[in-house]
Design a protein around this nucleic acid. Structure first.
Length: 492
RNA sequence: GCACCGGUGGCGAAGUGGCUAACGCGCGGGUCUGCAAAACCUGUAUUCGCGGGUUCAAUUCCCGCCCGGUGCUCCA
Protein backbone atom coordinates (compact mmCIF):
# COMPACT_ATOMS: atom_id res chain seq x y z
CA UNK A 1 0.00 0.00 0.00
CA UNK A 2 1.75 3.13 -1.21
CA UNK A 3 1.43 6.28 0.81
CA UNK A 4 0.02 9.21 -1.07
CA UNK A 5 1.25 12.34 0.63
CA UNK A 6 0.49 15.94 -0.20
CA UNK A 7 3.51 17.48 -1.85
CA UNK A 8 3.78 21.22 -1.31
CA UNK A 9 6.04 21.49 -4.33
CA UNK A 10 3.67 19.86 -6.82
CA UNK A 11 0.54 21.02 -5.04
CA UNK A 12 -1.02 17.57 -5.15
CA UNK A 13 -1.05 14.16 -3.58
CA UNK A 14 2.01 12.31 -4.79
CA UNK A 15 3.02 8.76 -4.02
CA UNK A 16 5.93 8.64 -1.63
CA UNK A 17 8.42 5.86 -2.15
CA UNK A 18 12.19 5.55 -2.05
CA UNK A 19 13.58 6.78 -5.35
CA UNK A 20 16.37 4.24 -5.12
CA UNK A 21 13.84 1.52 -4.43
CA UNK A 22 15.51 0.79 -1.17
CA UNK A 23 15.69 3.37 1.60
CA UNK A 24 13.56 6.48 1.84
CA UNK A 25 15.84 9.39 2.48
CA UNK A 26 14.23 12.22 4.37
CA UNK A 27 15.33 15.39 6.06
CA UNK A 28 13.34 17.18 8.71
CA UNK A 29 14.15 20.52 10.23
CA UNK A 30 14.82 20.06 13.91
CA UNK A 31 14.93 22.43 16.83
CA UNK A 32 16.93 25.51 17.59
CA UNK A 33 18.08 24.65 21.06
CA UNK A 34 17.78 27.95 22.87
CA UNK A 35 14.89 27.05 25.19
CA UNK A 36 12.57 24.17 26.04
CA UNK A 37 10.54 23.15 23.03
CA UNK A 38 6.80 23.74 23.19
CA UNK A 39 3.95 21.49 22.20
CA UNK A 40 3.62 23.25 18.86
CA UNK A 41 7.11 22.07 18.06
CA UNK A 42 6.16 18.60 19.16
CA UNK A 43 3.09 18.48 16.98
CA UNK A 44 5.45 18.73 14.01
CA UNK A 45 7.87 16.13 15.32
CA UNK A 46 5.03 13.82 16.25
CA UNK A 47 3.48 14.02 12.81
CA UNK A 48 6.82 13.26 11.24
CA UNK A 49 7.03 10.35 13.65
CA UNK A 50 3.67 9.13 12.36
CA UNK A 51 5.02 9.34 8.83
CA UNK A 52 8.14 7.37 9.70
CA UNK A 53 6.24 4.73 11.55
CA UNK A 54 3.67 4.29 8.82
CA UNK A 55 6.36 3.97 6.18
CA UNK A 56 8.01 1.27 8.22
CA UNK A 57 4.68 -0.44 8.79
CA UNK A 58 4.36 -0.71 5.02
CA UNK A 59 7.85 -2.14 4.77
CA UNK A 60 9.79 0.93 3.75
CA UNK A 61 13.10 1.55 5.42
CA UNK A 62 13.81 5.15 6.34
CA UNK A 63 16.93 7.21 6.66
CA UNK A 64 15.86 10.29 8.50
CA UNK A 65 18.22 13.16 9.15
CA UNK A 66 17.35 15.91 11.58
CA UNK A 67 19.40 19.00 12.19
CA UNK A 68 19.95 20.65 15.51
CA UNK A 69 20.59 24.36 15.17
CA UNK A 70 23.03 25.02 17.96
CA UNK A 71 24.25 28.42 16.85
CA UNK A 72 22.09 31.40 15.93
CA UNK A 73 21.33 34.92 17.10
CA UNK A 74 19.08 33.88 19.95
CA UNK A 75 21.52 31.32 21.23
CA UNK A 76 24.37 33.78 21.13
CA UNK A 77 22.29 36.39 22.90
CA UNK A 78 20.95 34.04 25.58
CA UNK A 79 24.29 32.42 26.22
CA UNK A 80 25.91 35.83 26.59
CA UNK A 81 23.24 36.86 29.06
CA UNK A 82 23.80 33.67 31.00
CA UNK A 83 27.53 34.22 30.84
CA UNK A 84 28.33 30.76 29.45
CA UNK A 85 29.80 29.53 26.16
CA UNK A 86 27.14 28.67 23.60
CA UNK A 87 28.08 25.00 23.69
CA UNK A 88 27.31 24.79 27.39
CA UNK A 89 24.13 26.75 26.90
CA UNK A 90 22.75 24.61 24.08
CA UNK A 91 23.75 21.26 25.59
CA UNK A 92 21.12 21.57 28.30
CA UNK A 93 18.30 22.32 25.90
CA UNK A 94 19.37 19.72 23.42
CA UNK A 95 19.39 17.11 26.14
CA UNK A 96 15.95 18.25 27.30
CA UNK A 97 14.68 18.15 23.72
CA UNK A 98 15.64 14.55 23.18
CA UNK A 99 14.36 13.63 26.59
CA UNK A 100 11.02 15.15 25.64
CA UNK A 101 11.00 13.19 22.40
CA UNK A 102 11.64 10.00 24.35
CA UNK A 103 8.80 10.77 26.72
CA UNK A 104 6.47 11.23 23.79
CA UNK A 105 7.79 8.08 22.19
CA UNK A 106 8.95 9.94 19.13
CA UNK A 107 11.49 7.77 17.38
CA UNK A 108 14.97 9.15 17.07
CA UNK A 109 16.13 10.03 13.57
CA UNK A 110 18.82 7.81 12.12
CA UNK A 111 21.10 10.80 11.99
CA UNK A 112 21.23 13.95 14.09
CA UNK A 113 23.30 16.72 12.54
CA UNK A 114 24.54 19.63 14.63
CA UNK A 115 25.24 22.85 12.83
CA UNK A 116 28.43 23.53 14.76
CA UNK A 117 29.84 20.17 13.72
CA UNK A 118 29.27 20.75 10.02
CA UNK A 119 30.77 24.17 9.42
CA UNK A 120 33.25 22.96 6.76
CA UNK A 121 30.39 21.52 4.68
CA UNK A 122 28.66 24.88 4.75
CA UNK A 123 31.79 26.75 3.79
CA UNK A 124 32.30 24.42 0.83
CA UNK A 125 28.77 25.03 -0.31
CA UNK A 126 29.19 28.79 -0.12
CA UNK A 127 32.40 28.53 -2.11
CA UNK A 128 30.61 26.50 -4.72
CA UNK A 129 27.93 29.15 -4.94
CA UNK A 130 30.56 31.82 -5.34
CA UNK A 131 32.09 29.91 -8.25
CA UNK A 132 28.70 29.92 -9.89
CA UNK A 133 28.34 33.62 -9.31
CA UNK A 134 25.47 33.12 -6.90
CA UNK A 135 27.22 34.22 -3.71
CA UNK A 136 29.01 37.43 -2.91
CA UNK A 137 30.85 38.91 -0.01
CA UNK A 138 30.03 42.30 1.43
CA UNK A 139 32.43 44.76 2.98
CA UNK A 140 31.90 43.56 6.51
CA UNK A 141 32.83 40.01 5.54
CA UNK A 142 29.32 38.55 5.35
CA UNK A 143 28.18 36.45 2.43
CA UNK A 144 24.85 36.65 0.63
CA UNK A 145 22.99 34.58 -1.89
CA UNK A 146 22.17 36.42 -5.09
CA UNK A 147 18.51 35.76 -5.64
CA UNK A 148 18.74 36.78 -9.26
CA UNK A 149 20.89 33.68 -9.81
CA UNK A 150 17.92 31.40 -9.20
CA UNK A 151 14.95 32.30 -11.42
CA UNK A 152 12.79 29.49 -10.04
CA UNK A 153 12.78 31.13 -6.59
CA UNK A 154 9.30 30.93 -5.12
CA UNK A 155 8.31 27.61 -6.67
CA UNK A 156 7.68 25.98 -3.32
CA UNK A 157 5.68 28.68 -1.60
CA UNK A 158 4.12 29.71 -4.93
CA UNK A 159 5.27 33.24 -4.55
CA UNK A 160 5.94 35.43 -7.53
CA UNK A 161 8.61 37.82 -6.43
CA UNK A 162 9.34 39.17 -9.90
CA UNK A 163 6.99 42.06 -9.41
CA UNK A 164 8.61 43.16 -6.21
CA UNK A 165 10.87 46.08 -6.82
CA UNK A 166 13.92 46.58 -4.73
CA UNK A 167 13.92 49.74 -2.75
CA UNK A 168 10.20 50.32 -2.88
CA UNK A 169 9.43 49.13 0.59
CA UNK A 170 12.67 47.60 1.73
CA UNK A 171 15.81 49.36 2.73
CA UNK A 172 18.36 48.29 0.14
CA UNK A 173 21.29 49.92 1.84
CA UNK A 174 21.09 47.80 4.91
CA UNK A 175 23.97 45.37 5.01
CA UNK A 176 25.17 46.56 1.61
CA UNK A 177 23.31 43.81 -0.15
CA UNK A 178 22.98 43.89 -3.93
CA UNK A 179 19.28 43.27 -3.63
CA UNK A 180 17.11 43.66 -0.58
CA UNK A 181 15.84 40.12 -0.97
CA UNK A 182 19.22 38.48 -1.05
CA UNK A 183 19.61 36.41 2.06
CA UNK A 184 22.56 35.75 4.31
CA UNK A 185 24.72 32.69 3.84
CA UNK A 186 27.40 33.62 6.31
CA UNK A 187 27.50 36.27 8.97
CA UNK A 188 30.77 38.03 9.64
CA UNK A 189 32.10 37.71 13.16
CA UNK A 190 31.25 40.49 15.54
CA UNK A 191 33.49 41.22 18.50
CA UNK A 192 32.94 38.79 21.31
CA UNK A 193 30.62 36.50 19.35
CA UNK A 194 31.22 32.85 18.71
CA UNK A 195 32.80 32.45 15.29
CA UNK A 196 34.80 30.09 13.12
CA UNK A 197 37.92 30.89 11.15
CA UNK A 198 37.36 29.50 7.66
CA UNK A 199 38.42 29.84 4.05
CA UNK A 200 35.69 32.38 3.46
CA UNK A 201 36.58 34.43 6.50
CA UNK A 202 35.79 34.54 10.17
CA UNK A 203 32.14 34.24 11.06
CA UNK A 204 29.24 31.87 11.49
CA UNK A 205 26.76 30.23 9.17
CA UNK A 206 23.33 31.55 8.30
CA UNK A 207 20.43 29.33 9.19
CA UNK A 208 19.41 28.33 5.68
CA UNK A 209 22.83 27.13 4.58
CA UNK A 210 22.99 24.76 7.54
CA UNK A 211 20.11 22.69 6.35
CA UNK A 212 21.20 22.65 2.72
CA UNK A 213 24.71 21.55 3.59
CA UNK A 214 23.74 18.94 6.12
CA UNK A 215 20.91 17.49 4.09
CA UNK A 216 23.18 17.00 1.10
CA UNK A 217 26.03 15.71 3.23
CA UNK A 218 23.99 12.93 4.75
CA UNK A 219 21.43 12.24 2.05
CA UNK A 220 23.06 13.23 -1.22
CA UNK A 221 22.35 16.08 -3.58
CA UNK A 222 18.87 14.78 -4.34
CA UNK A 223 16.70 12.98 -1.86
CA UNK A 224 13.12 11.88 -1.35
CA UNK A 225 11.44 14.04 1.24
CA UNK A 226 11.95 17.21 3.17
CA UNK A 227 9.60 17.95 6.04
CA UNK A 228 9.02 20.72 8.53
CA UNK A 229 6.52 23.12 10.01
CA UNK A 230 4.43 25.21 7.66
CA UNK A 231 6.13 28.39 8.78
CA UNK A 232 9.42 27.16 7.38
CA UNK A 233 8.08 26.95 3.84
CA UNK A 234 8.99 30.56 3.29
CA UNK A 235 11.65 31.70 3.40
CA UNK A 236 13.64 28.87 4.96
CA UNK A 237 12.78 26.01 2.63
CA UNK A 238 12.61 28.26 -0.37
CA UNK A 239 16.12 29.43 0.39
CA UNK A 240 17.34 25.90 0.88
CA UNK A 241 16.08 25.04 -2.58
CA UNK A 242 17.68 28.09 -4.10
CA UNK A 243 21.09 27.40 -2.57
CA UNK A 244 21.13 23.70 -3.14
CA UNK A 245 19.81 23.61 -6.65
CA UNK A 246 22.00 26.47 -7.75
CA UNK A 247 25.04 24.65 -6.40
CA UNK A 248 24.27 21.23 -7.84
CA UNK A 249 22.05 21.88 -10.80
CA UNK A 250 19.92 19.01 -9.53
CA UNK A 251 16.58 18.83 -7.85
CA UNK A 252 17.04 19.09 -4.08
CA UNK A 253 14.13 17.33 -2.35
CA UNK A 254 11.50 15.71 -4.54
CA UNK A 255 8.72 15.83 -2.00
CA UNK A 256 7.94 18.49 0.59
CA UNK A 257 5.72 17.93 3.58
CA UNK A 258 4.56 20.79 5.77
CA UNK A 259 2.87 20.27 9.10
CA UNK A 260 0.27 22.90 9.88
CA UNK A 261 0.34 24.93 13.02
CA UNK A 262 -1.03 24.14 16.38
CA UNK A 263 -3.19 26.86 17.89
CA UNK A 264 -3.93 27.30 21.56
CA UNK A 265 -7.50 28.31 22.27
CA UNK A 266 -7.79 29.49 18.70
CA UNK A 267 -4.62 31.58 18.74
CA UNK A 268 -1.31 30.86 17.19
CA UNK A 269 1.26 29.67 19.65
CA UNK A 270 4.88 30.62 19.38
CA UNK A 271 7.78 31.38 21.56
CA UNK A 272 7.71 35.02 20.55
CA UNK A 273 4.06 35.27 21.60
CA UNK A 274 4.88 33.72 24.94
CA UNK A 275 1.63 31.75 25.07
CA UNK A 276 3.18 28.36 24.87
CA UNK A 277 3.14 25.18 26.87
CA UNK A 278 6.05 22.85 27.08
CA UNK A 279 5.63 19.13 27.44
CA UNK A 280 6.86 19.45 31.00
CA UNK A 281 4.19 22.03 31.80
CA UNK A 282 1.50 19.56 30.79
CA UNK A 283 3.04 16.60 32.58
CA UNK A 284 3.20 18.62 35.79
CA UNK A 285 -0.46 19.47 35.36
CA UNK A 286 -1.08 15.75 35.56
CA UNK A 287 -1.67 14.89 31.91
CA UNK A 288 -0.13 11.70 30.62
CA UNK A 289 2.46 11.64 27.89
CA UNK A 290 0.31 9.24 25.88
CA UNK A 291 -2.66 11.61 26.01
CA UNK A 292 -0.51 14.47 24.79
CA UNK A 293 0.83 12.28 22.02
CA UNK A 294 -2.62 11.19 20.89
CA UNK A 295 -4.11 14.68 21.11
CA UNK A 296 -1.33 16.06 18.93
CA UNK A 297 -1.54 13.39 16.24
CA UNK A 298 -5.26 12.75 16.03
CA UNK A 299 -5.88 15.76 13.85
CA UNK A 300 -4.20 15.09 10.50
CA UNK A 301 -0.98 16.99 9.88
CA UNK A 302 -2.44 18.98 7.01
CA UNK A 303 -4.95 20.76 9.22
CA UNK A 304 -4.52 23.21 11.98
CA UNK A 305 -5.04 21.74 15.39
CA UNK A 306 -6.61 23.76 18.13
CA UNK A 307 -5.06 22.61 21.36
CA UNK A 308 -7.26 22.64 24.45
CA UNK A 309 -7.23 20.91 27.82
CA UNK A 310 -10.58 19.37 26.93
CA UNK A 311 -8.82 17.77 23.99
CA UNK A 312 -6.28 16.23 26.34
CA UNK A 313 -9.00 14.86 28.57
CA UNK A 314 -10.72 13.37 25.56
CA UNK A 315 -7.51 11.72 24.46
CA UNK A 316 -6.94 10.39 27.97
CA UNK A 317 -10.36 8.78 28.02
CA UNK A 318 -9.99 7.33 24.55
CA UNK A 319 -6.71 5.72 25.49
CA UNK A 320 -8.29 4.27 28.62
CA UNK A 321 -10.90 2.62 26.48
CA UNK A 322 -8.28 1.00 24.30
CA UNK A 323 -6.14 -0.10 27.22
CA UNK A 324 -9.08 -1.54 29.10
CA UNK A 325 -10.10 -3.43 26.02
CA UNK A 326 -6.68 -4.89 25.47
CA UNK A 327 -6.43 -5.93 29.09
CA UNK A 328 -9.79 -7.63 28.72
CA UNK A 329 -8.49 -9.58 25.74
CA UNK A 330 -5.23 -10.64 27.25
CA UNK A 331 -6.50 -11.43 30.73
CA UNK A 332 -9.85 -12.94 29.92
CA UNK A 333 -10.54 -16.66 29.61
CA UNK A 334 -12.39 -17.63 26.48
CA UNK A 335 -13.79 -20.89 25.22
CA UNK A 336 -11.85 -22.70 22.54
CA UNK A 337 -12.74 -22.13 18.93
CA UNK A 338 -12.89 -19.36 16.44
CA UNK A 339 -15.52 -16.92 15.30
CA UNK A 340 -15.14 -16.32 11.56
CA UNK A 341 -17.08 -13.09 11.76
CA UNK A 342 -14.59 -11.56 14.14
CA UNK A 343 -11.70 -12.67 12.01
CA UNK A 344 -13.24 -10.91 9.05
CA UNK A 345 -13.92 -7.77 11.06
CA UNK A 346 -10.33 -7.72 12.19
CA UNK A 347 -9.10 -7.99 8.64
CA UNK A 348 -11.38 -5.21 7.48
CA UNK A 349 -10.31 -3.00 10.35
CA UNK A 350 -6.68 -3.55 9.57
CA UNK A 351 -7.19 -2.75 5.91
CA UNK A 352 -9.19 0.37 6.62
CA UNK A 353 -6.68 1.51 9.20
CA UNK A 354 -3.84 1.28 6.73
CA UNK A 355 -5.85 2.72 3.88
CA UNK A 356 -6.69 5.82 5.90
CA UNK A 357 -3.06 6.42 6.76
CA UNK A 358 -2.00 5.76 3.18
CA UNK A 359 -4.37 8.56 2.21
CA UNK A 360 -2.21 11.51 3.21
CA UNK A 361 -1.77 10.23 6.76
CA UNK A 362 -5.39 10.60 7.73
CA UNK A 363 -4.93 9.83 11.41
CA UNK A 364 -8.48 10.82 12.33
CA UNK A 365 -9.84 8.42 9.74
CA UNK A 366 -7.47 5.69 10.83
CA UNK A 367 -8.78 5.65 14.40
CA UNK A 368 -12.33 4.87 13.39
CA UNK A 369 -11.95 1.26 12.20
CA UNK A 370 -9.99 0.40 15.32
CA UNK A 371 -12.66 1.76 17.63
CA UNK A 372 -15.29 0.01 15.53
CA UNK A 373 -13.50 -3.24 16.06
CA UNK A 374 -13.19 -2.61 19.78
CA UNK A 375 -16.94 -2.22 20.07
CA UNK A 376 -17.67 -5.31 18.00
CA UNK A 377 -15.26 -7.41 19.99
CA UNK A 378 -16.56 -6.11 23.31
CA UNK A 379 -20.06 -6.98 22.23
CA UNK A 380 -18.96 -10.45 21.26
CA UNK A 381 -17.28 -10.91 24.61
CA UNK A 382 -20.38 -9.74 26.47
CA UNK A 383 -22.48 -12.19 24.50
CA UNK A 384 -20.08 -15.05 25.02
CA UNK A 385 -19.36 -15.29 21.32
CA UNK A 386 -15.73 -14.37 21.59
CA UNK A 387 -13.51 -17.41 21.38
CA UNK A 388 -9.91 -18.02 22.30
CA UNK A 389 -8.90 -18.30 18.65
CA UNK A 390 -10.11 -14.77 17.93
CA UNK A 391 -7.71 -13.16 20.30
CA UNK A 392 -4.65 -13.00 18.09
CA UNK A 393 -6.41 -11.51 15.08
CA UNK A 394 -7.75 -8.69 17.21
CA UNK A 395 -4.49 -8.14 19.03
CA UNK A 396 -2.75 -7.91 15.67
CA UNK A 397 -4.91 -4.93 14.77
CA UNK A 398 -4.11 -3.23 18.06
CA UNK A 399 -0.46 -3.89 17.37
CA UNK A 400 -0.73 -2.26 13.96
CA UNK A 401 -2.46 0.69 15.52
CA UNK A 402 0.16 1.01 18.20
CA UNK A 403 3.03 0.68 15.78
CA UNK A 404 1.97 4.10 14.53
CA UNK A 405 0.00 5.70 17.36
CA UNK A 406 1.93 4.07 20.21
CA UNK A 407 -0.44 4.93 23.02
CA UNK A 408 -2.01 1.63 24.12
CA UNK A 409 1.16 0.21 25.60
CA UNK A 410 1.45 2.13 28.84
CA UNK A 411 4.74 3.99 29.23
CA UNK A 412 3.24 6.88 31.14
CA UNK A 413 4.70 6.42 34.59
CA UNK A 414 8.27 7.17 33.60
CA UNK A 415 7.82 10.59 31.94
CA UNK A 416 5.67 11.78 34.81
CA UNK A 417 8.19 10.57 37.35
CA UNK A 418 11.09 12.20 35.50
CA UNK A 419 9.20 15.44 35.00
CA UNK A 420 8.55 15.59 38.72
CA UNK A 421 12.19 14.94 39.38
CA UNK A 422 13.09 17.73 37.03
CA UNK A 423 10.60 20.06 38.70
CA UNK A 424 12.16 19.33 42.03
CA UNK A 425 15.68 19.94 40.75
CA UNK A 426 14.79 23.19 39.05
CA UNK A 427 12.55 24.65 41.72
CA UNK A 428 9.28 24.21 39.85
CA UNK A 429 7.30 22.21 42.38
CA UNK A 430 4.84 25.07 42.72
CA UNK A 431 3.68 24.24 39.19
CA UNK A 432 2.73 20.69 40.05
CA UNK A 433 -0.98 19.97 40.21
CA UNK A 434 -2.14 18.79 43.66
CA UNK A 435 -3.99 15.85 42.10
CA UNK A 436 -0.76 14.65 40.60
CA UNK A 437 0.96 14.78 43.96
CA UNK A 438 -1.94 12.90 45.52
CA UNK A 439 -1.57 10.22 42.89
CA UNK A 440 2.13 9.93 43.52
CA UNK A 441 1.59 9.63 47.25
CA UNK A 442 0.64 5.96 47.17
CA UNK A 443 2.83 3.12 45.98
CA UNK A 444 1.71 0.13 43.95
CA UNK A 445 2.34 -2.08 46.98
CA UNK A 446 0.11 0.06 49.17
CA UNK A 447 -2.58 -0.06 46.54
CA UNK A 448 -2.32 -3.83 46.28
CA UNK A 449 -2.64 -4.17 50.05
CA UNK A 450 -5.77 -2.03 50.14
CA UNK A 451 -7.26 -3.81 47.16
CA UNK A 452 -6.71 -7.14 48.93
CA UNK A 453 -8.25 -5.84 52.11
CA UNK A 454 -11.25 -4.60 50.20
CA UNK A 455 -11.69 -7.97 48.51
CA UNK A 456 -11.68 -9.60 51.92
CA UNK A 457 -14.25 -7.14 53.23
CA UNK A 458 -16.44 -7.80 50.21
CA UNK A 459 -16.26 -11.51 50.75
CA UNK A 460 -17.54 -10.95 54.28
CA UNK A 461 -20.22 -8.71 52.82
CA UNK A 462 -18.81 -5.82 54.76
CA UNK A 463 -19.69 -3.35 52.05
CA UNK A 464 -19.24 -0.31 54.22
CA UNK A 465 -15.59 -1.12 54.74
CA UNK A 466 -15.12 -2.10 51.08
CA UNK A 467 -16.61 1.17 49.90
CA UNK A 468 -14.55 3.17 52.36
CA UNK A 469 -11.40 1.67 50.94
CA UNK A 470 -12.58 2.34 47.42
CA UNK A 471 -13.24 5.98 48.27
CA UNK A 472 -9.85 6.33 49.79
CA UNK A 473 -8.25 4.93 46.67
CA UNK A 474 -10.38 7.06 44.38
CA UNK A 475 -9.11 10.16 46.11
CA UNK A 476 -5.61 9.12 45.23
CA UNK A 477 -6.55 8.61 41.63
CA UNK A 478 -6.84 4.84 41.81
CA UNK A 479 -9.78 3.40 39.95
CA UNK A 480 -11.13 -0.03 40.86
CA UNK A 481 -12.91 -2.40 38.56
CA UNK A 482 -14.47 -5.60 39.81
CA UNK A 483 -14.90 -8.15 37.08
CA UNK A 484 -15.44 -11.86 36.70
CA UNK A 485 -11.75 -12.25 36.07
CA UNK A 486 -10.87 -10.52 39.31
CA UNK A 487 -10.23 -7.01 40.52
CA UNK A 488 -8.41 -4.64 38.22
CA UNK A 489 -7.07 -1.27 39.30
CA UNK A 490 -5.40 1.52 37.47
CA UNK A 491 -4.09 4.97 38.03
CA UNK A 492 -6.11 7.81 36.67
C1' G B 1 -4.24 44.64 0.99
C1' C B 2 -2.58 39.94 -1.50
C1' A B 3 -2.31 34.49 -0.89
C1' C B 4 -3.67 29.92 1.31
C1' C B 5 -6.65 26.79 4.69
C1' G B 6 -11.03 25.90 7.33
C1' G B 7 -16.53 26.63 9.03
C1' U B 8 -20.18 19.09 9.69
C1' G B 9 -24.32 17.04 16.39
C1' G B 10 -22.76 19.81 23.25
C1' C B 11 -17.17 19.32 21.96
C1' G B 12 -13.18 17.15 18.68
C1' A B 13 -13.41 15.19 13.91
C1' A B 14 -13.84 11.76 9.12
C1' G B 15 -16.25 11.64 4.71
C1' U B 16 -19.15 11.50 0.05
C1' G B 17 -22.61 14.10 -6.18
C1' G B 18 -27.62 9.73 -4.69
C1' C B 19 -27.72 3.64 0.44
C1' U B 20 -29.58 4.91 7.80
C1' A B 21 -23.61 11.72 7.46
C1' A B 22 -17.85 7.51 10.30
C1' C B 23 -15.24 7.47 14.81
C1' G B 24 -13.95 9.51 19.68
C1' C B 25 -15.32 12.35 24.03
C1' G B 26 -19.53 14.16 26.76
C1' C B 27 -24.62 13.84 28.21
C1' G B 28 -29.82 11.15 29.03
C1' G B 29 -32.24 6.18 29.49
C1' G B 30 -31.55 0.83 30.02
C1' U B 31 -28.79 -4.10 30.92
C1' C B 32 -25.08 -6.05 34.25
C1' U B 33 -23.40 -5.09 39.57
C1' G B 34 -24.37 -5.42 46.88
C1' C B 35 -23.33 -0.34 45.01
C1' A B 36 -19.91 1.24 41.51
C1' A B 37 -16.46 0.79 37.56
C1' A B 38 -15.75 -1.50 32.92
C1' A B 39 -18.60 -3.31 28.92
C1' C B 40 -22.94 -3.57 26.01
C1' C B 41 -27.82 -1.70 24.15
C1' U B 42 -30.34 2.88 23.22
C1' G B 43 -31.26 8.21 22.49
C1' U B 44 -28.51 12.40 21.34
C1' A B 45 -27.08 16.64 13.30
C1' U B 46 -34.71 15.57 9.30
C1' U B 47 -28.92 17.94 8.65
C1' C B 48 -23.24 19.52 7.02
C1' G B 49 -21.78 28.80 8.01
C1' C B 50 -25.36 32.05 4.80
C1' G B 51 -27.41 33.24 -0.16
C1' G B 52 -27.63 31.97 -5.21
C1' G B 53 -26.37 28.65 -9.40
C1' U B 54 -25.30 23.83 -12.11
C1' U B 55 -27.72 18.88 -11.78
C1' C B 56 -32.95 14.16 -12.07
C1' A B 57 -30.08 14.67 -7.34
C1' A B 58 -25.26 18.86 -3.43
C1' U B 59 -23.09 18.80 2.87
C1' U B 60 -20.02 17.18 -1.37
C1' C B 61 -19.15 21.07 -7.88
C1' C B 62 -19.39 26.70 -9.27
C1' C B 63 -20.17 32.04 -7.79
C1' G B 64 -20.89 35.67 -3.99
C1' C B 65 -21.07 36.91 1.15
C1' C B 66 -20.12 36.31 6.45
C1' C B 67 -16.97 34.22 10.27
C1' G B 68 -12.29 31.95 12.13
C1' G B 69 -7.14 30.92 11.32
C1' U B 70 -2.41 31.14 9.00
C1' G B 71 1.35 33.07 5.63
C1' C B 72 3.51 37.56 3.15
C1' U B 73 9.18 39.15 8.90
C1' C B 74 12.49 35.40 13.40
C1' C B 75 9.18 31.13 14.41
C1' A B 76 7.59 23.79 14.35
Amino acid sequence: MTLRLFNTLSGQLDPLAPSDGNVLRMYACGPTVYDYAHIGNFRTFLQIDVLRRFLRLTGIEVKHVMNVTDVDDRIIRNAAEAGVPIGAYTAEYERAFFEDLDWLHVERPEQVARATENIPRMVELIQKLEEKGAAYRTEDGSWYFRLAAFPAYGKLSKKDLSGMEDGARVDVDEYEKDSARDFALWKAAKPGETSWETLIGRGRPGWHIECSAMAMTYLGESFDLHAGGEDLMFPHHENEIAQSETATGKQFARHWMHVRFLLVDGRKMSKSEGNFYTLRDLLLKGYKASAIRLALISVPYGRQLNFTFDGLTEATNGIERLRTFRARLTEGAFAAGENPQLREMAQTAQQNFRAALADDLNTAGARAPVFDLVRSANTAIDQGQFLAGDRDAILAVLKDFDSVFDVIEDHDAEPTRLALEWAEQTGRMANVAPELLARQSITDEQVEALVAERAQAKKQRNFARADAIRNELTQKGILIEDSKDGVRWKRK
